[in-house]
């Protein structure tokens, strides 16, 4: 690709990304209350979305592979336990990640 073609390609990706982020704000502009169903979705979707994001992060874990996803499962349990104990988000994330890296280094 030429430089101009690369810039246009990246521009197309920018447009698509901005559209996925801005579309709800364009369809339901400020100053006019969104329909009741949409406002209900605003409260109903986030817990499900966070579940989706957890699964999204784990999408390439091969449960049938050599480790059967055990390092990930252990690290998630460790993260959750640390968080229930200390309720400190940065600490839970660093602790869980350190645990995961330690497990990977040990096997």
């Amino acid at each position: 690709m030429t430089t101009a073609q690369m810039l246009i390609t990246i521009g197309a990706a920018v447009l698509a990304t901005v559209l996925t982020r801005a579309l709800p704000f364009l369809v339901f502009p400020e100053g006019r209350p969104a329909p009741r169903y949409v406002r209900y979705l605003g409260n109903a979707l986030p817990p499900a979305v966070f579940g989706l994001l957890v699964v999204y992060c784990l999408r390439s874990v091969d449960v049938m592979g050599a480790t059967h996803g055990l390092p990930e499962a252990l690290a998630i349990l460790g993260t959750a336990a640390l968080h229930l104990w200390k309720r400190n988000m940065p600490l839970s994330i660093f602790g869980g990640t350190a645990l995961y890296m330690a497990i990977l280094a040990l096997i």
């Binding site: 986030p46 817990p47 966070f50 579940g51 994001l53 957890v54 992060c57 784990l58 990930e72 690290a75 998630i76 993260t79 959750a80 968080h83 229930l84 988000m89 839970s92 994330i93 660093f94 869980g96 990640t97 995961y100 890296m101 990977l104 280094a105």
Partner: peptide, 19 residues
């Protein structure tokens, strides 16, 4: 490989907080 787990941990923590 190991460090990108920080993103997984972030979503786990937020999922838990919401829960």
């Amino acid at each position: 490989e190991g460090l990108s787990f920080a993103m997984t941990a972030l979503f786990v923590v937020i999922f838990l907080d919401q829960w």
